[in-house]
Design a protein around this nucleic acid. Structure first.
Lengths: 176, 176
DNA sequence: CATAATTTTCATTATTTACTGAAACTTCGA
DNA sequence: TCGAAGTTTCAGTAAATAATGAAAATTATG
């Protein structure tokens, strides 16, 4: 049984490491540490977890755990499920990597690309008719930016609405 | 001349709006407001600007302006240039949208994707040999994630090293 | 070389963002 | 319908991040 213990320890260490580091990374990509940690935790949990499990595992407060679980549900990266004989809410993560990718892509588009597009288009519109080199240069620059971002946005839609297999096929062609 | 004034005003308003909003957006994508504002300013400036110009335009301190100008140079989104007869450093932005895209893509990859990949690969490696359903599930999950992220990383390289024309051609095919 | 102009650094302060913990609220079962 | 179990909210606090401004360092010029 000793060997088993060692294996269990080393699994636990690795998983803890993963959760911790994923949390640290989260801050780099504009989501808070706890949210990223919970995501890491649920992605690698064999069973659904409840709020108290998360609190215990991360040593976080109830409010914090709750808020970030809800936020992850909002994103669509985890879902609430009902465990029979249990009154509490349980959560499980979407584990399919392609689905995760499409969810994250859509959300980033919504949060980062669409607002930018709106500004660019408005500024291009506002300065459309103005005469003079300065005005024309400005108009042209925001127009270019707007067109590019709009284009990128369409691409992102197209790709993230593809089936995994099809995307893979396309990607292979590009890499090849 | 009155009409000219109106046109100038409306250009200025639009540009100020652009700078302000771009700054606000910046915080969404993990760069600070001032950096995004300076970028917006220089992207739409007909002439190179010096630190004092930036300070004046944004009402920011010297330290702040300086730090963020340097950071933008680091990214490669702006460059220092020498204006003849001027002792001060001047800066101008890269205005080509495709070049901007490749710069930003590379930087995000470096900051967001590569560290994630490292963690995923290490965790997969650490748990490779461990027996047991839990260990195997964990190993499998991080391996899948690692493979996907590695793949995405390669794609990002490939695309951002393309010439604009070629990328456009590819994109058109995908959108079509 | 002296000094004026400019850049750079960094300790301090301000602002923003995240977290806590307890109270208010909701739901379910006896 | 009451109370226990659980969820949600939020005012207060802590932590992280960004900005200031002045001093130190560097660089150009007479």
């Amino acid at each position: 049984m000793k060997i088993m213990k060692v294996a269990e320890d080393s699994l636990k260490r690795s998983r803890d490491e993963f959760v911790a580091q994923w949390g640290a990374l989260g801050t780099q990509w504009g989501i808070n540490r706890t949210m990223a940690q919970i995501h890491a935790l649920l992605m690698t949990s064999p069973e659904p977890m409840c709020t108290d499990d998360v609190m215990a595992e991360l040593e976080a407060s109830r409010g914090n755990a709750h808020t970030n679980l809800k936020e992850l549900v909002n994103w669509g990266l985890i879902r609430m499920i009902v465990v029979k004989g249990e009154r509490r809410d349980f959560y499980e993560a979407e584990k399919d990597v392609w689905k995760m990718f499409t969810i994250i892509t859509r959300e980033r588009k919504r949060r980062e690309i669409e607002p930018a597009l709106e500004i660019l288009n408005r500024c291009a519109e506002e300065t459309k008719g103005i005469k003079g080199v300065e005005a024309e240069a400005f108009h042209n620059q925001v127009k270019q930016l707007g067109e590019f971002v709009g284009f990128a946005s369409k691409m992102s839609d197209k790709i993230s609405s593809m089936k995994h297999g099809l995307a893979l096929q396309l990607a292979t062609k590009i890499l090849g």
